[in-house]
């Protein structure tokens, strides 16, 4: 696959602007019901991993899912409509922000049960293997999720059977209000791979090019039949756990420090230095993305609500 760095930048910027809009709507309007969980600061993980995936590759996502969805090519309009609870959303309003499934782009499950997706990724990878298909599954989860039993069982089984799955652990320094040192004794969550006989690698999750390279390597390993890889992406959640979180436990200096390591600014600077990107071109990219976000909001806003009785649909086939 040919690496297009401008597309990486575009992807990260799209996630950033989309989620900024969500946060704003959630705080300032009544359009969004319930809590809003965003990934601001972590965009390089979704975009870098997403860039190595083919349409047939599968994503299993978690509660911090918008970036994963967008990076896999999900339609911002349908995501926005789902978050608004409208009938036109990806899941007709049944999921909301927390559980969006977009089978159209092979995001087959977004679960908000922490760790719940990791064993499912073993299953989707098993199916690819069983059907001898050349595709992989990426399972995104957080540092906190690696404390669940589901993580350990799933990694052991995936490794035992050499399944084509990439376990993408987004270490954003917090699990709820707990810092990593408060919820685990391991310095690197990637070290947990040793226990299951699979490679575990640590990657700068704010450097989208390194994210991309690492995911490509893991994908090649999957496709050559050697089995899964656990990749720990070191990154940081700029905001709180959700829009309801006052971040009382998150030191301001720490946030500022990580903001200096903004994945978007880093790539932008590189591209400008390399002469690949000019200020004008960047501005144009910004404008296009902002316009697309506004269009998504307009679409969601103007979409009809589901009928109350629609709740009864879609349970059995």
């Amino acid at each position: 696959m040919h690496l297009n760095k401008l597309n990486l930048l575009r992807s990260m910027l799209q996630i950033r602007r989309f989620e900024e809009k969500l946060e704003q709507l959630s705080r300032e309007t009544e359009k969004i019901y319930g809590m809003m969980i965003v990934s601001t600061g972590q965009e390089a993980v979704a975009s870098g991993v997403g860039a190595v995936l083919d349409p047939a590759d599968v994503i299993i996502s978690n509660h911090r899912s918008h970036g994963h969805l967008l990076a896999k090519g999900a339609d911002p309009k349908l995501i926005m409509a789902e978050i608004f609870g409208k009938a036109t959303g990806y899941n007709k309003g049944k999921s909301g922000t927390l559980h969006i499934a977009a089978p159209e782009v092979n995001v087959l499950c977004t679960t908000t049960v922490v760790g719940g997706g990791i064993p499912i990724a073993v299953g989707t990878a098993f199916a690819s293997h069983y059907k001898q298909q050349k595709n992989v599954t990426v399972c995104f989860f957080g540092d906190g999720a690696s404390d669940e039993g589901s993580f350990h069982e799933a990694l052991n089984l995936a490794s035992l059977w050499n399944l084509p799955v990439i376990f993408a652990c987004e270490n954003n320094v917090y699990s709820g209000a707990q810092r990593v040192e408060e919820h685990s004794k391991v310095k690197n969550f990637a070290d947990r791979a040793i226990a299951y006989g699979m490679p575990g690698i640590v990657v700068d999750g704010n450097n989208v090019l390194e994210v991309y390279q690492s995911a490509m390597k893991a994908k090649e390993r999957c496709l050559s039949g050697e089995g899964p890889t656990l990749i720990e992406y070191k990154t940081y959640r700029w905001g709180g756990h959700s829009t309801h979180d006052q971040q009382s436990y998150q030191p301001q200096e720490e946030i500022e420090l990580w903001k200096k390591l903004c994945p978007i600014e880093q790539l932008k600077a590189t591209l400008i230095k390399e002469g690949v990107l000019g200020q004008e071109q960047y501005q144009q990219m910004e404008n296009e993305i902002k316009q697309a976000v506004e269009e998504a909001v307009k679409f969601a806003d103007e979409s009809p609500w589901p009928q109350p009785e629609d709740a009864m649909e879609d349970i059995y086939i």
Binding site: G85, G93, K94, G96, H99, W305, P306, D310, A311
Partner: peptide, 16 residues
């Protein structure tokens, strides 16, 4: 509640 999972969207959640 009817025999369904709790839906997210407000009109459906209220129906539940």
């Amino acid at each position: 509640a009817p025999d369904i999972p709790v839906p997210y969207s407000k009109p459906m959640e209220q129906f539940y």
